[in-house]
């Protein structure tokens, strides 16, 4: 399991637009770099990220090689009710990881 950082405001108000910051530990190997043996390393990147709130899509992103290692994404969400946020990263070599956070409206 890769380490992740997810930053949410603790008790947002209803109708507030909050900023969500996510980061996952991943090398994002581009497939253009030679390895220690001089042979070009295979591409190994995270290709997509989704954020669902109560199973409804809030934000989705397709990532490419030009995204820096340990992909960081910051986006917004309109708070309507309390619920569960699910963050999913998926990519090359069958990489898939999902993290969930509870969001409680003040």
């Amino acid at each position: 399991m890769a380490r992740t950082l997810i930053n949410l405001p603790r008790n947002p108000k209803r109708g507030e637009v909050i900023e969500i910051r996510t980061l996952i530990q991943h090398g994002m190997e581009t497939g253009y770099r030679p390895g220690p043996n001089g042979v070009t390393q295979q591409r190994d990147i995270i290709r997509s990220f989704t954020c669902l709130f109560n199973n409804e899509e809030v934000f989705r992103a397709e990532l490419h090689q030009a995204i820096a290692a340990n992909p960081f994404l910051e986006f917004s969400m309109l708070v309507t009710e309390s619920g569960i946020l699910a963050f999913t990263w998926s990519g090359d070599n069958g990489f898939e990881q999902t993290e969930t956070r509870a969001l409680t409206v003040a």
């Binding site: 909050i18 899509e57 809030v58 960081f72 994404l73 986006f75 969400m77 309109l78």
Partner: peptide, 11 residues
């Protein structure tokens, strides 16, 4: 649902 069309990342 996004509330605001804003995206920040590192490239």
């Amino acid at each position: 649902r996004s509330g605001r069309a804003r995206l920040a990342t590192r490239i």
